[in-house]
Design a protein around this nucleic acid. Sequence first.
DNA 1: CTTGATCCTCCAGTCACTGGAGAATGTACG
DNA 2: CGTACATTCTCCAGTGACTGGAGGATCAAG
Lengths: 140, 140
Amino acid sequence: MKNLSIGALATRTGVKIPTIRYYESIGLLPEAPRTDSNRRLYDDAMVKRLRFIRHARDLGFEVEAIRQLLTLTDDPGQSCHEADALAQAHLADIESKIVRLQALQEEVREMVAQCGQGQVRTCHVIEVLADHAHCLHETH
Amino acid sequence: MKNLSIGALATRTGVKIPTIRYYESIGLLPEAPRTDSNRRLYDDAMVKRLRFIRHARDLGFEVEAIRQLLTLTDDPGQSCHEADALAQAHLADIESKIVRLQALQEEVREMVAQCGQGQVRTCHVIEVLADHAHCLHETH
DNA sequence: CTTGATCCTCCAGTCACTGGAGAATGTACG
DNA sequence: CGTACATTCTCCAGTGACTGGAGGATCAAG
């Protein structure tokens, strides 16, 4: 699909209009071409890019990390050295997030199971998520 | 360990001192007891609670969600009805995050593998993460 | 051609921190 | 015991990532 308005882009991605303009202003999205009357135009490629940004933000990645990931995809001929190091760092980060989410999931499930027996009794979500063993690459 | 200073708590959890005070100010941490000279005192329970908060924030949960999760654990006798609904909602959210992280992981891995052959060639991180099928419970 | 929806820019507000100023307190060494 | 350096205190201003309102232009339908 070509020539989407900013509103159409917003409904297709779940990203609010002011946020889309904000992403453009900080360079996460390229400057959109405009109509004669100065309105922004988007296409399917932008829908995909914006959905990617939205998911990554929702998963706790900050804008700078997303910018790096996007550079990786925007610049297919770039040197492998930098790209690889960057990708490895992000992989470690992703792995750590998955492990901690799974621990959290397990604990909430257990809590719900106990709940089925009448009351939320002993909950140790905190103990599990606080476990330092789940911090794979962090320095604290 | 008892009677930790705010600095000791900060180094044990990786959370900065002003952030700890901020969490107290918004009620995520209880008001810490003070020494005669007005300095905050913490114990191991607070180390665990704070590590939990840090991980959850890092995983993209917002403060309100964390507050709810903490209420679940703080209040073991609470009614099951509310707690269960709340926990189910958080479980769906966690599941969705895991799925999207795994898709991202897969794609970055593939990108790195291609990288081993010389260059970052065709990268479709965006396509995968942008896939609407990965949005399990969201309305967009 | 009017009416309502959508868009524009600009700018102020919110959430979740982050850090500096200035003052008080603690700790360590000569 | 004093003095020097570290740590803490409160208050307040700044940052990152949005979020939303004001005021005005433009578009699409009837």
